[in-house]
Every structure is written in C-alpha cells, then in structure tokens.
C-alpha cells in the first residue's frame, strides 16, 4: 500500500486532522464531531472524556477505522484510513490494533480460551493456543479455559476480553468504557489489569470513559463536549 504511507514524525502513531462527522436524521443533519485535531504518540495513554452523547465513542470508532468521518483525515500506524477499503482496514486492525468494549463482546459459541486465541488465529500465528493460555494465566483465568461466556461473570468476561486484546501484541489498544458495566470492585480489578498490561507491553492506549478517576490514570486527557475538544 505505498500510496497510503504517511510522512508524519515517526513517534506519532495516530494523527487526526480536521475531523467532522454528521449523520442524517429525520430532523436534518446531526453533527457528532466538529473540527477534531489530535495527535497521539507511540506508547502514550490518552483518555477521551465527556458526558453521554458528547461524541467520545464516535471519535474512538473513527480513530480505530471502524467508521469513516464525513470530513477530515485519520492516520493510524502510518496508514491513511480514508484511502483504505474495508479489507485493508481489517488487515490494519488485525496487525496493529486491539479492542476492549463495555459489553465485553465475546463470541458466545467459543470458550474463554478459544475467544482469546481468535485474533492470533485470524493473524495466522502458529502457537495461538499456547499464547492464549499464557494470556489467560496473566489475567487470572487459567482455571477457566473451557468455560463459555455465559458461564462467566461480567468481570471474568472482561478479563477474557483483555487477554484477547493483548494476545496479538497490538501497537494501539482502544478501550471503550471498559469498566462501566461492572461493579466497583470488579471495575477496579479490570482497570488495574488493563494499565498493568499496557505498561508491560508498551502499547498505546486510547481509552474512552466518563469517569474522571479512570481518565486521570492516563498520561493525557482530552474532554469532548458536543463533538468538540474543549480541553486538551
């Protein structure tokens, strides 16, 4: 993909410039993001905070290449996302990106171990099972390999999701409200685990949250309001 190579400084892993995003509704165009410019350095941890409906999740999905902005550019891991088709973006995610979602989103038909193996298998890693076992051990679920998602508690499911996110050693990890669906103590465990593993692997972390306490654990925070960055 030579045409999509970037000319950014080598330590910038995500660069968003002039991002605008709107959707058509019955009442006309609804603006979700306005003139977003953002640079994230390799290994940096960034929290995107804001109230509900401020555009946090929309920004995350555009930065991760899950959605396309109406206007503007996103450069992720040296690739200009606007010039990539769906397949190329999938390939980019496969090689460089990990995700953690509020709803855990494990594949219900697969066991904990198989869920963790999934990204490595899609990538064609030969020792996927061995790696998955190691990661499950790291998140404290070595004994629950064969359990299916509906046999695990919410906290356990999120730990599986964290192991799944890290197994392919992503350059960037996107986390969308990772502890919002959990009680305080489980939420705390998940947050600690996430930051600990992130530090160990030197991954860039982009975290969406509405909790200031969690956001403060990141090196940098930006605050969104009505689709604009009001504080950086």
């Amino acid at each position: 993909m030579p045409t999509t190579e970037s000319t950014l400084a080598p330590n910038i892993i995500i660069n968003a410039s002039g991002l605008n995003h709107h959707v058509a509704t019955h009442a006309g165009n609804l603006s979700l993001l306005n003139d977003i410019n953002l640079q994230i350095k390799q290994g940096e941890s960034l929290a995107i905070v804001g109230a509900s409906g401020s555009g946090k999740t929309t920004l995350l999905s555009i930065l991760a290449g899950l959605d396309s902005a109406s206007q503007g550019n996103v450069n992720l891991c040296g690739q200009n996302l606007e010039s990539l088709d769906e397949e190329q973006r999938a390939s980019l995610r496969r090689e460089n990106v990990g995700f953690i979602f509020q709803q855990f989103l494990l594949v219900p038909a697969l066991s904990a171990l198989e869920n963790v193996m999934l990204p490595a298998e899609l990538k064609g890693v030969a020792n996927a099972r061995q790696l998955a076992e190691q990661w499950l051990e790291k998140v404290g679920l070595a004994e629950r390999h064969d359990h299916y998602p509906n046999q695990l508690s919410g906290g356990e499911q999120q730990r599986v999701a964290i192991a799944r996110a890290f197994i392919s050693q992503p350059k960037v990890l996107f986390a969308d409200e990772p502890s919002a669906n959990l009680d305080n103590s489980n939420g705390q465990i998940i947050e600690d685990l996430l930051f600990e593993l992130n530090q160990q692997s030197g991954t860039t972390l982009v975290l969406v949250t509405h909790e200031l306490k969690l956001a403060e654990r990141c090196a940098r925070q930006i605050t969104l309001q009505a689709g604009r960055i009001i504080k950086q």
């Binding site: 397949e87 390939s91 496969r94 995700f99 989103l105 594949v107 999934l118 990204p119 899609l122």
Partner: peptide, 16 residues
C-alpha cells in the same frame, strides 16, 4: 451479526 461484526473488528478479512 454481532459475531461477524466482532470478527471484523478483530481484523478478520472477508475471505476469512
């Protein structure tokens, strides 16, 4: 639908 969406998020290609 959700599973396929998740596969795609994890980088699965269409042929996969």
């Amino acid at each position: 639908y959700d599973t396929v969406a998740m596969f795609k998020v994890l980088g699965a290609s269409k042929p996969q």
